[in-house]
C-alpha cells in the first residue's frame, strides 16, 4: 500500500504551480474577474502545455485542478473536462433545466427536447445556469428523445442558439442560460448509454471540483498564514496569539483531511479502475463534502485573520471566497451527498 505522489506527479505539480503563479498573479486574476471573465489567450497556452492530453489520469488532472483552484486559473478547463468531448476545443456541460435539478437525476428527465429529422437531430428548450458558456465553443447537453434522455453536443455558434448571460457571484466562472430553438445537434450517447456516461461525468465533475476546492482552501490558508506572520498588533505578530494561530491550525487540519479524500477519490474514479460503482460514489461524495467545507471555512477563517483589509474589494481573498461559494452551490448540496452516504451505511 502506498498513498503519496510519485516523482512525476510532484514534478507536474511544481511546474504547474510555477506556470500559473507567473502567468496569473492575483492582480491579473482580479482584473479578469472584473473584466472579460476569462483569459482569452489562456486556452491555447494550456493546450500547448498538454492539459488536454488524453494520457493524463484523473489523479494528474486532480493535481492540475488543485493548482487551478489555488491560482484561480481563469480558463474554462474544468467545464471542458466535465464535457470530455473529443478534441481540444473549450467546452461545457448543460444538464440543469426546469425538469432536471441535479446531475444524479439528469438521465431521467430533461426540459430540452431532441427530435430526429432528415437532416439529423435538432434540440429545442432552455438550459439554466450553464457555467463558462461565454468562454467555450462546444456544449454537451442532455435532451429528451421519444425513447428517453440522451446526450448531445451543439456548437455555441450554431443556428438557433441564444446565450443569455446572467450576473454571477464568481466573475471567473460565469453562468448563462442556453436557449435552443431547433438547433442542430450531434448525438454523443444514446438512451441506453446515457446513465453510465452521466455517472462517469458526475464522478469526473465532482472529483475535479473537490480538487479545485482543495486548492482554494490551500490558498486561503496561505493568505492567512502570511498575514498572521507579518501583521503586528500589541507589539507582536498576530500569529503569536492563540486566538489567531488556532484558527490557522484548524484550516490546516481541514486542508490535510480534504487532500486525502480528494486524491483517494481521484484514484478510485479514474477510468482505468474497475471498482464497484458504489465504492466510487461514496469516495467522491466524501471528497466533495470535506473539500467544500475546507474551502468555504478556510476562506472565512482567512477573512477573519486578515481583519479589515480582508473586507475590502481590493484584497483578493474575496475572489477565492466567491469561488468556494460557487463550488458549494454547484449542482447538489452536500446534504444530498450525505444522504447518499447514509443510504450506503444504513439502507434506504
Amino acid at each position: 500500500m502506498e498513498f503519496g505522489f510519485t516523482e512525476q506527479q510532484r514534478h507536474l505539480r511544481e511546474v504547474t504551480r510555477a506556470y500559473l503563479a507567473e502567468r496569473y498573479p492575483p492582480d491579473r486574476v482580479a482584473a479578469l474577474a472584473d473584466g472579460a471573465g476569462h483569459a482569452p489567450d489562456g486556452w491555447a497556452s494550456l493546450v500547448e502545455l498538454g492539459w488536454r492530453d488524453g494520457d493524463l489520469g484523473l489523479v494528474e488532472q486532480a493535481v492540475l485542478a488543485d493548482e487551478s483552484g489555488y491560482a484561480l486559473h481563469p480558463v474554462p478547463w474544468w467545464s471542458t473536462l466535465c464535457a470530455a468531448l473529443p478534441g481540444t476545443a473549450p467546452a461545457t456541460v448543460a444538464c440543469h433545466d426546469d425538469d432536471c435539478a441535479t446531475l444524479d437525476a439528469a438521465h431521467r428527465a430533461s426540459a430540452v427536447r431532441a427530435v430526429a429529422g432528415p437532416g439529423g437531430w435538432r434540440v429545442s428548450g432552455v438550459k439554466r445556469l450553464v457555467p463558462d458558456l461565454a468562454a467555450v465553443t462546444e456544449v454537451l447537453l442532455t435532451a429528451g428523445t421519444a425513447e428517453g434522455v440522451a446526450l448531445f453536443r451543439v456548437r455555441r455558434d450554431a443556428a438557433g442558439v441564444t446565450v443569455v448571460d446572467r450576473a454571477g457571484l464568481d466573475g471567473l466562472r460565469r453562468p448563462a442560460d442556453l436557449r435552443l430553438a431547433d438547433t442542430p445537434a450531434e448525438p454523443v450517447a444514446g438512451v441506453a448509454g446515457t446513465p453510465a456516461a452521466l455517472r462517469r461525468l458526475r464522478w469526473r465533475a465532482y472529483t475535479l471540483l473537490a480538487a479545485e476546492a482543495l486548492g482554494v482552501a490551500r490558498r486561503a490558508y496561505d493568505l492567512a498564514v502570511a498575514h498572521a506572520r507579518t501583521r503586528t498588533q500589541f507589539g507582536r505578530p498576530i500569529g503569536a496569539f492563540q486566538g489567531v494561530s488556532f484558527r490557522v491550525a484548524d484550516s490546516y487540519v481541514a486542508v490535510e483531511l480534504a487532500h486525502s479524500l480528494v486524491y483517494r477519490a481521484a484514484w478510485l474514479a479514474g477510468p482505468d479502475g474497475d471498482r464497484p460503482d458504489g465504492t466510487v460514489d461514496e469516495a467522491v461524495a466524501a471528497a466533495v463534502v470535506a473539500a467544500r467545507d475546507a474551502a468555504v471555512r478556510g476562506c472565512e477563517h482567512a477573512i477573519q485573520v486578515l481583519g479589515g483589509i480582508g473586507m475590502t474589494w481590493e484584497h483578493p481573498v474575496h475572489r477565492w471566497y466567491r469561488r468556494a461559494l460557487w463550488i458549494r452551490g454547484f449542482d447538489a448540496p452536500s446534504a444530498r451527498h450525505r444522504a447518499g452516504l447514509a443510504r450506503a451505511l444504513l439502507g434506504s
Binding site: 500500500m1 463534502v289 447514509a342
Partner: peptide
Amino acid sequence: RDEVAQLHVEVQALRWTGYRALT
C-alpha cells in the same frame, strides 16, 4: 442519518490521512 454520514466522512478522512502519514 445526516449526522452519521458526516461522521463517516470524518472517519474516512482520518483513515486515508493515516495511510498518507504511513507512506
